[in-house]
Each structure stands twice: as C-alpha cells, then as structure tokens.
Simulated scan of single mutants.
Amino acid sequence: MRFDILTLFPGLFESYLQQSLLKKAIDAGLVDIQRWNIRDWATGVHKSVDDKPYGGGPGMLITCEPTFDCVEAVQKAAPQPGRLIMLSPQGRQLDQQLVSELAEEERLLLLCGRYEGFDDRIREGLQPLEVSAGDFICNGGEVPAMLVIDAVIRLVPDVLGDETSSKYDSFSDSARLEYPQYTRPREFRGMKVPDVLLSGNHQEIARWREQESLKRTQERRSDLLD
C-alpha cells in the first residue's frame, strides 16, 4: 500500500518512518511512503504558500495554486491514482470503520494543513475526503496523518506478525473495547492473573473474555453499545 504525504514540513516524518512496525513494513515492501513539500510548487521569489484571509481575521490560509499543482503532480507520480484525504477538524471522525474503508484503497494521498487551514476552494475543487482525528485542534495535519498511517497499516496483509491481532483490537470486534490481558509473572505486588486464564479451558477463557469486553465497554464507553 502506498501513502503520499503532502505537507509543508516533511521533516516531521523523518523519525516516525524509522521506527518499529512501520519501518519493518517499509523494509519488507509492504508499505511505501513518499513525502512531498507543497512549497516546491510555489512560485515567486519567496516561495510563498499562504496569504491573509479575505474579510479579515487572524492567521494565514494556505493558497490554492501551489496546493492544486502539488496534488495534481503527485497524482501523476504513480500509475495508480490515489484517494485524496484532507486532514481537517471539520471532517469525518477517524474510527475503526473508516480505517477499514481506507485500508481497502491501494493508495492514499494525505494532505496536511497548517496555519488557519486551506482556502476553501481547495476543498471545493479537489473534492477530498476530509478526515478529523477528533474534536480538538492540532498545529497541523501531520500528526493526524501519522495516526491514519499507523491505524491503516495494521490492516495491510502481512504487516502484523499475527494476522489475528487486529481482529481482537478495541473497536474491531462488534465495536467493543478489548478485554484485559496479562503476561508473566502470575502475581505482581499482590495483583494476580485471573484463574480462568490459567485453566487451559478455551471455552471458559473465550466466555470470560466476552464478558470482560462487554463489562469494560459498559463502564468506559457505553455509547458504543447504543
């Protein structure tokens, strides 16, 4: 699967791309990530990509011309056109259902905003899928883009060592939170692993996990059960 990151700060991804599961997936050829600097498509002496909003107001907006030129050039950089994602607090909230949909794509273009956002004609003209990381504001779209990549690659075949791992994640199974899990030692500072997990009775273990998943969801995210 290919990700193209369109940003004014490609260096923010330098360390991120060199860590853990993502690096292994890239090295194995399962995931391809390309970074593009929107400023490379800016014109003029100062390579300006932003300007003051019409009507007044604080901050600056990313302008149309370099953004359109960047997106259109990046779309042509691979044989397979990609689905354009604009990271925006006004977009569809990222959840596991959306992650699953995005994982079906062969290529995603992640358009990262900065400052006060984009000239709205970028949204109107390029028709991206707007995606929000949640009801909060980040300094830019780069961290939300990392969240999208991190979540989506888990569903790319062969990225996870155990292909059943993602199946039991929170929100993946009937929109419930995951059951509690334990490892060695059996007891730590007076806290013990539940006996059922040591019983070897797989039916009882499955029943316990189902009950604990439901209990945890009721306690912490009852809205998921509505």
Rank of each mutant, 00 (worst) to 15 (best):
F3E: 03
D4A: 00
I5V: 15
I5N: 00
T7N: 01
T7A: 02
F9G: 01
G11L: 01
G11Y: 00
L12C: 02
F13C: 01
Y16P: 00
Q19A: 14
D27F: 04
D32H: 04
D32V: 03
Q34K: 13
Q34H: 10
W36L: 03
N37E: 05
R39H: 03
D40P: 03
W41S: 09
H46G: 10
S48C: 11
S48D: 10
V49P: 09
D50L: 05
G55K: 08
G57L: 13
L61I: 12
T63E: 14
F68S: 05
V71E: 13
V74W: 06
A77S: 15
S88E: 05
P89E: 03
Q90E: 14
R92L: 10
R92F: 08
L94Q: 11
D95R: 12
Q96H: 04
Q96G: 02
V99I: 13
S100Y: 02
L102E: 09
E105H: 08
E106K: 14
E106S: 13
L109Q: 02
Y115E: 05
Y115W: 06
E116N: 12
D120P: 13
G125M: 12
E130R: 11
V131N: 06
S132N: 10
S132C: 11
I137H: 07
G141S: 07
V143P: 02
P144R: 02
I149G: 01
D150C: 01
D150I: 00
V152G: 05
V152A: 05
R154N: 06
L155Q: 05
V159L: 03
L160A: 03
D162K: 08
S165K: 03
S165H: 01
S165V: 04
F171K: 11
S172A: 15
E178G: 13
E178A: 14
Y179S: 09
P180E: 04
R189P: 04
D195C: 11
V196I: 15
V196E: 12
L197F: 12
S199L: 06
G200M: 12
H202I: 05
E204F: 06
I205T: 06
Q211M: 14
S213E: 09
K215L: 13
S222Y: 12
D223N: 15
